[in-house]
Simulated scan of single mutants.
Amino acid sequence: MPLEYSSPAMLLDHGFDSLIDVRSPGEYAEDHIPGAINLPVLNDAERARVGTLYRQNPFEARKIGAALVFRNAADHVENSLLQRDGGWRPLVYCWRGGQRSGTLAWMLREIGWRSDTITGGYRSWRRLVKAALYDRPLPHRLVLLDGDTGTAKTALLHRLAARGVQVVDLEGLANHRGSLLGARPGGQPTQKGFETALAARLARLDPARPVLVEAESNKIGERNLPPALWAAMRVAPRIRVSAPVEARARFLNEAYDDVLSDAARLKDLLGWLRPHRGHAVVDGWFSLIDAGERLALTRALIEQHYDLAYRRSRKGAGAACAEVEALSLDAPGVEAAAARIEAALGEIMPQEG
């Protein structure tokens, strides 16, 4: 009998040995329930073929679709699932909990495996994500980690996580460093994929304990922060971290090594700032790129672009509840700053209970 779940946390803790997404590779790539493996019973071309035929002749489409689904399901049993023992318990889903997942689950049960399906399939997961991120306030007690560009906020989040602090790395989930030069290899997840990762992360956190999140705009690269998260961030208290310009320039030189090492790409990106910073400023940056003066370039970008943009974006933001200065941003400096941020976090928002 199909199973129903009432929250992302409940579905993520499904208790089965494996979670199988039988949708096409394209559907799976757009978004899927975390932890699911893709064993498609229709590939992208087959799904398109059956869908087109269904609009013309539903009965013929069901016949062709059944043949393809059983053929592909048999192939999975003979290959991907051949080594599974008799005690294996899989949970299967498709787009809406219908024929694709039902067919594979039935076949697995006939073999002797205790398989089941999710009521509503992927659409149920998507409804749970939407409810958590769009339709009701977050239950979490957020605190923002604020600071100028280059103050190692993401590195600090990782160190704080290692110290047991609850954190959400939004830039990591969005696979983007949140700036003009912030694109990362592999590209960004889809909006649905980003929201799935975010909902899964929040579902694992204790609402009674504070959650540290980097202060961001409402968009990271091309991914929008969902309304419930953005509303919580707008009223959250802030801890502001600062560091000397030279330390920030050195940190950016390392953190952005990929883009700084590609002069042509770097010039293309910085060229977009000519209407905002002027030709003379941008030409000066190009001269530093041509000369290979990376530290001078990162310092110039901090002083002539990032700090100006940061001050403008902070207009209207509340004052920080705590200030933490990092004298250096090497490993010992980040560790020391993380300890002071953890102490400040405990003062701003003591643990409940």
Rank of each mutant, 00 (worst) to 15 (best):
I37Q: 14
N57K: 12
A300S: 15
A73P: 00
R240P: 07
F59G: 11
A162H: 07
R84G: 07
A29C: 14
G97D: 09
E171G: 05
G316Y: 11
A319K: 14
L128N: 03
L308Y: 14
E4D: 15
P185I: 09
R177K: 13
E293Q: 15
H140G: 09
E78S: 14
L327V: 05
E303W: 12
L327I: 05
L181D: 03
A249T: 01
A343D: 06
Y256L: 03
E352A: 15
E352K: 13
W285I: 14
D283W: 10
G318F: 10
A73Y: 02
L252I: 04
R141F: 01
D257Q: 12
G186I: 09
E254C: 12
D85R: 14
R223L: 15
C321V: 13
P90K: 08
L205E: 06
L82E: 10
S18G: 15
A309P: 08
L142F: 10
D148A: 09
A300P: 13
M107I: 04
D206H: 01
G178D: 01
L12W: 02
A319R: 15
L170M: 09
L128I: 05
Y256T: 00
L157W: 01
A337F: 01
R126H: 09
E347A: 15
A105N: 04
W125P: 02
L160S: 06
Q83N: 13
L12M: 14
A162Y: 00
A231R: 15
H176T: 00
I348M: 11
R89A: 09
W106K: 07
R55I: 05
G292F: 08
L173I: 00
R240K: 12
V241M: 11
V324M: 10
L68V: 07
R265S: 07
W272T: 06
R96L: 07
A161C: 07
R209H: 03
P275W: 11
Y28H: 10
F70Q: 09
L128Q: 03
Y93K: 07
M1P: 11
L53R: 13
G121C: 04
W106F: 08
A291S: 15
R127G: 05
D13S: 15
R109V: 00
G112W: 05
Y310T: 11
V324F: 06
I348H: 06
G186Q: 10
P207R: 11
S179R: 10
R204E: 10
G186W: 06
R114H: 12
E27R: 11
L42P: 01
E347Y: 10
L39Q: 10
R201L: 03
